[in-house]
Amino acid sequence: QVATSTVRILGMTCQSCVKSIEDRISNLKGIISMKVSLEQGSATVKYVPSVVCLQQVCHQIGDMGFEASIAE
């Protein structure tokens, strides 16, 4: 089973930030795809909930120095 959710990301300033986040999160087990939008300050994450949760994704992004939260 696959889920798609949006994560809000604060602190991104350039495409390099976007690429860094996409590269790191895409390597997590259970992540199918991730598309980060600098303009919208968010990311669309396609993932397998039984393998990885959005809290883990937000935590990983937080470790990179950005502020991440699950969009309502």
Rank of each mutant, 00 (worst) to 15 (best):
E22L: 07
A71I: 15
S20A: 09
V48F: 14
Q60D: 10
A68Q: 01
K35A: 08
M12N: 00
C58T: 12
Q60W: 12
N27A: 13
C53S: 15
T44N: 08
Q60C: 05
A43W: 04
C53M: 11
L54K: 02
S26I: 10
M34V: 15
P49N: 05
E22P: 02
I9V: 06
K19W: 09
T4S: 08
E39T: 11
G65Y: 05
Q1H: 12
I9E: 02
Q55G: 07
M12C: 05
C58N: 11
N27Y: 07
P49S: 08
R24G: 10
S69K: 08
S20V: 09
C14R: 01
A71M: 13
K29S: 12
E72R: 06
A68V: 12
G41P: 00
C17G: 03
V48N: 14
G11I: 06
L28Q: 06
S42Y: 10
I9S: 00
T6V: 14
V45E: 02
A43H: 03
R24D: 04
R8N: 14
S5C: 15
V18Q: 05
E72I: 12
Q40M: 13
T6S: 09
K46F: 08
Q56F: 14
H59M: 15
M34T: 04
K46S: 13
S37H: 11
A43P: 03
E22Q: 08
C17V: 04
L54F: 04
S42Q: 11
G62K: 15
K19F: 09
I31N: 00
A68R: 01
E39L: 10
C58L: 15
V36G: 01
V48R: 14
G11L: 06
P49H: 07
C14S: 07
S5A: 15
D63Q: 15
I25M: 07
R8A: 08
Q1T: 12
G41M: 10
A68S: 06
C58G: 08
K46R: 08
K19R: 14
Q56T: 13
D23S: 13
S16C: 05
L54D: 01
E72C: 07
V52I: 14
K35M: 08
S42I: 13
Q60V: 15
A71G: 11
V45H: 04
S16G: 08
C17Q: 15
F66S: 01
L38W: 06
S16E: 14
C53T: 15
V7I: 14
I21M: 02
T13Q: 07
I21L: 05
H59N: 14
D23V: 09
I31W: 03
M12P: 00
F66K: 02
V45N: 01
V45P: 00
L28Y: 06
S5H: 11
V18W: 05
S50R: 07
R8Y: 14
G30E: 01
S50M: 07
E22G: 03
K19H: 10
F66L: 02
V7W: 05
V45R: 01
H59S: 15
A71P: 13
M12W: 04
E39S: 10
I21C: 04
I9P: 05
F66T: 02
V51K: 07
V51M: 14
F66H: 01
V2G: 05
D23H: 14
H59V: 14
S33P: 00
G30N: 01
L10E: 10
A71E: 12
C58Q: 10
V36Y: 01
Q40L: 14
N27K: 13
D23P: 01
R8H: 13
C58W: 07
K19S: 10
E22A: 06
Q1F: 07
P49C: 05
A68P: 05
N27F: 08
S5W: 06
H59T: 15
Q40H: 15
K29C: 07
G65M: 04
P49L: 06
Q56H: 10
S69N: 07
L10I: 13
R24S: 10
V18R: 05
A43N: 03
S37M: 07
V2R: 02
T44G: 03
T44H: 08
V52L: 10
A43R: 02
E22T: 08
L54V: 07
S16K: 14
G65V: 04
V45L: 12
V2L: 07
S50G: 10
V52C: 03
Y47H: 02
S69R: 11
G41D: 06
I31P: 00
C17D: 15
G62N: 15
S37Y: 09
Y47G: 01
S33Y: 09
A68I: 06
L10D: 09
F66C: 03
C17H: 15
G41Q: 14
I70S: 08
P49W: 07
L38C: 05
V48A: 08
V18I: 05
T4Y: 09
E72Y: 09
I61V: 04
L10H: 12
A71L: 15
S20I: 10
M64V: 04
F66R: 03
V52T: 06
K35E: 08
T6H: 10
N27E: 13
Q15T: 08
K29F: 11
T6Q: 12
S69Q: 10
L54W: 05
K46V: 15
I9M: 00
K19N: 11
M34E: 00
S26V: 08
V57A: 02
H59R: 15
Q40R: 15
T6I: 14
N27Q: 13
S16R: 12
V57Y: 04
Q56R: 09
I9R: 00
L10R: 15
M34K: 00
I21H: 02
T44W: 13
G41E: 14
L54S: 02
A43V: 05
C14K: 01
C58A: 13
I32K: 04
S5Q: 08
C53E: 11
M34N: 00
S26A: 08
C14D: 06
N27M: 13
G65Q: 03
G30L: 06
N27D: 11
L28I: 14
S69V: 11
A71H: 07
S20K: 15
E22S: 05
T6L: 13
S26H: 08
E67Y: 12
E72N: 10
S37V: 06
T13R: 14
C53P: 10
R8C: 13
A43E: 04
Q1A: 09
Q60H: 09
E72A: 11
I25A: 01
E67G: 08
I70Y: 12
L38E: 00
T6C: 13
F66Q: 02
S69C: 08
M34A: 07
C14W: 04
A3V: 12
Q60M: 15
M34I: 15
I61K: 04
Q55F: 08
V52K: 03
I9F: 04
M34Q: 00
V51L: 13
G62E: 15
C17K: 02
A43Y: 03
K19V: 10
G11H: 04
S33C: 07
T4A: 04
A43S: 04
V45S: 00
M64G: 00
V45Y: 04
V18P: 11
K35N: 08
I32P: 00
I21R: 02
D63V: 14
R24H: 11
V57K: 02
E39A: 13
T13Y: 15
L38G: 00
C14V: 03
S33W: 09
I31Y: 02
T44R: 13
S50P: 03
T44M: 11
C53G: 10
L28W: 06
Q40F: 12
G30I: 07
E72P: 09
L54H: 02
Q40A: 13
Q15A: 11
N27W: 06
I25P: 01
A3C: 15
T13V: 13
Q60G: 05
V2W: 14
C53R: 13
E39H: 12
A43G: 13
G62Q: 15
E22I: 08
A71K: 09
K29H: 09
E72D: 13
S69T: 14
V36M: 03
